[in-house]
């Protein structure tokens, strides 16, 4: 792990000075607040915009507090994943393309520590963003809809975090392997699109990383069949390890493609 802590420090400075440490958590918090607030006022909004005849009462469903967090997760599964993929698609590939990586690669670093320094810092940043987003959403849900037990929320967050780490690992492994454009296309397919496909056509299999977010919502609702979850979680951890190994290997192999 030669150079890991030095490279980690470099990654930290990068996230701070490129404002990613500021804007990404902010965006997740904003979504975390908007979701419960709009859901709370949706009936009123519909009534004032909707030109409904007097006396007719639109039967608006009553949301349970937990359902608000699940629908916030739905936001993160689309816009959130889009932001994660696009914000970090160039983490390795752009460094290679613009030549800034060259002066790192000619030093006696190990490519595993190079890859892992990025993997660690970006995971910390993204997980922190997702967590503060959900915590903000939880607080507003408690104010507007009713409280949710902390144990349920944290179990849900822990499970969802595993999915987020999987997403970050995919993006970084692709960035080590492909040019930035390819990372964006394949990255969005393997995260956002696959999660949708799996929920639409994946009724016959249960052990897949793309169902972890759905399982996280079952955990929140208290309806999760845990043996199934542990199998899927185990597979996800295994795939994350493979992605990290692949990413480290590809970082080294593609070092020759850096702009000199």
């Amino acid at each position: 792990m030669k150079g890991f802590s030095v490279l980690l420090h470099k990654e930290w400075r990068e996230q701070v000075r490129n404002f990613k440490l500021l804007w990404i958590p902010l965006v997740f918090i904003i979504f975390g607040i908007i979701e419960p607030v709009t859901n709370h006022f949706l009936p009123q909004i519909m009534k004032s915009v909707g030109n409904m005849p007097d006396g007719m009462d639109f039967p608006w469903p009553e949301f349970a507090p937990k359902e608000i967090l699940v629908s916030l997760m739905g936001q993160y599964q689309s816009i959130g994943l889009l932001i994660i993929v696009l914000a970090f698609m160039g983490a390795i590939s752009s460094e290679r393309k613009n030549g800034t990586a060259t002066l790192l690669y000619v030093r006696p670093i190990s490519y595993a520590s190079y890859f892992l320094s990025k993997w660690t810092m970006i995971n910390i940043l993204v997980l922190a963003s997702v967590w503060v987003g959900f915590l903000a959403g939880w607080y507003y849900t408690a104010q507007l809809f009713g409280s949710i037990p902390a144990a349920d929320v944290f179990a849900f967050l822990a499970a969802y975090s595993l999915w987020i780490i999987f997403v970050v690992s995919i993006v970084l492994a692709l960035s080590a392997w492909l040019p930035t454009g390819g990372v964006a296309a394949l990255g969005l397919f393997l995260t956002l699109i696959m999660a949708i496909l799996d929920s639409v056509i994946g009724a016959y299999w249960t052990v897949t990383p793309w169902k972890i977010s759905t399982y996280a919502s079952y955990i929140l609702m208290g309806s999760m069949d845990y043996p199934t979850f542990w199998k899927a979680a185990g597979l996800t951890v295994f795939l994350i390890i493979l992605l990290v190994l692949f990413g480290s290997y590809m970082s080294g192999r593609n070092a020759a493609k850096t702009t000199v």
Partner: peptide
């Protein structure tokens, strides 16, 4: 009291982007 935090955070985001 519910809307203001959203507007405030969006304003911060906008200002950070403009400064950058």
């Amino acid at each position: 009291n519910l809307i203001l935090p959203i507007l405030g955070l969006q304003l911060i985001l906008m200002i950070v982007a403009l400064i950058d």
